[in-house]
Design a protein around this nucleic acid. Structure first.
Lengths: 243, 243
DNA sequence: GAGTGGTCTAGACCACCCC
DNA sequence: GGGTGGTCTAGACCACTCT
């Protein structure tokens, strides 16, 4: 998880993990690609297959790689499979599965406010893109998202690109900007709907909403997105598991 | 995680996991105890040390066992260490660490209502204990909990036992009834404070609260607790991570 | 020094996928 | 049948803890 800790002693498989991660950062293997077989990697890194295995096992446990028996090991992609929805924790209460559609409100270039600058490790006032959108279920707006991303990593992003893309926002980031989210931290509160948001979500002013603040990280645990979601949870819940 | 799935083929280490879990259920090794060394278990189960290792690795990843290099492998306990707070996801916004104190309101025997009966796999009307309490930070009430547990698993529980116990509720369940929680699922919503709850939490009526519904499981993935927490989140957040 | 978990290796064999 | 990941073994050696 955290690649800090005292490197008084670093196991081989840990070094292999870092080498693989570096290849992912460098784009040697792209999301959806198969990486070389364990045997090939073992001879490339001059270690045994078992050591490569342990490194891949851990990356697979972090959902960065995906193993498929008999076929190979693949780089997780937000464009396909489970990975495309693994960051969506809002579910219908009746148990039915339904995916939301996006309705974009605005895409603007802004100066980073303190709240997102700190978490994105930027200077306050650094250039960011700010995306506002609604997530709708059955065409009814349920979530209002405000999303901040550093302009430096998303050069050339504009409103039309976002609006014309079909698929999730993370698959957009991955496909158009080569930035893949691998992990996120969320802080959740209950808040009262502001006048502005109440109109967007079509709820009474002061209606209770779930406020979900997220920081998302890409390879190497670099923070690259801050967002605040305001969710109407009368018929939906945020679902999580712990052990 | 789920011990279902098609058993068309069951790896050895998986069978070892089941055998270890059965020993935990039977109480052969209790929370806090060291289990036998890998070498001992290998000879007991007639497999190699590596196979035992893989089984223990997975149980450790699920926080059911805890490895300590040079010392041994221990059964996770809610009475000590990280495990004692790993189900508490509410944290202060200012980043300071503070643990809540319990203030019990009532402990009663009830008939299970539909909502908890279904999730606890009981008949509606089955006998349960209902515990109501406040969790306080700096003596200020922040969370109101209503907790349902099957009476059959907690025979003899009464109000005095609960009130006189010092420590978390899960360490109480573990110590007094031999029931250890290993996993939980939560569904979260934003709701308005009822008149009743607003008085307990000392917030205005209709104030937004986080409603956290939980089902907790013990060894063998048996559900043994349902609870609903109502949290005042003006200075606290529910924190979670995903990957 | 003895005992524990942790790493690393090498090799055999199995289950799965696809040609 | 050949390639991939998955299991299992046996053994050597390392890092850590306690006595």
């Amino acid at each position: 998880m955290n690649s800090l800790a005292s490197p008084s002693y670093r196991p081989l498989y840990d070094q292999i993990k870092i080498l693989i991660t570096q290849s992912l950062i460098a784009g040697e293997w792209k999301p959806g690609d198969a990486i070389p077989s364990e045997i090939d990697l073992a001879s490339r890194f001059k270690v045994s297959q078992g050591t490569v295995r342990k490194a891949i096992d851990e990356l697979a446990a972090e959902n960065i790689l995906i193993r498929r028996q008999g076929k190979g090991t693949y780089v997780a992609s937000h464009t396909t499979g489970i990975s495309s929805t693994r960051f969506l924790r809002i579910n219908r209460d009746d148990g039915q599965i339904e995916y939301p559609t996006s309705q974009f409100i605005s895409v603007t270039k802004e100066k980073a406010p303190e709240i997102s600058a700190n978490l994105l490790e930027l200077r306050v006032g650094a250039s960011i893109y700010c995306i506002k959108r609604l997530l709708c279920y059955k065409n009814k707006p349920q979530i209002f998202d405000e999303i901040h991303i550093p302009a430096a990593y998303f050069k050339g992003l504009d409103e039309d690109m976002v609006k014309n893309f079909t698929g999730s926002l993370y698959s957009f980031f991955e496909t158009r900007f080569g930035i893949t989210m691998i992990r996120a931290e969320e802080h959740i509160k209950a808040v009262a709907a502001s006048h502005e948001v109440s109109k967007l979500l079509k709820v009474p002013e002061h209606h209770p909403l779930l406020q979900v603040d997220r920081v998302a990280f890409t390879y190497g645990d670099r923070p690259v997105e801050w967002r605040r979601g305001l969710c109407h949870t009368d018929r939906f819940s945020y679902v999580t598991e712990m052990s």
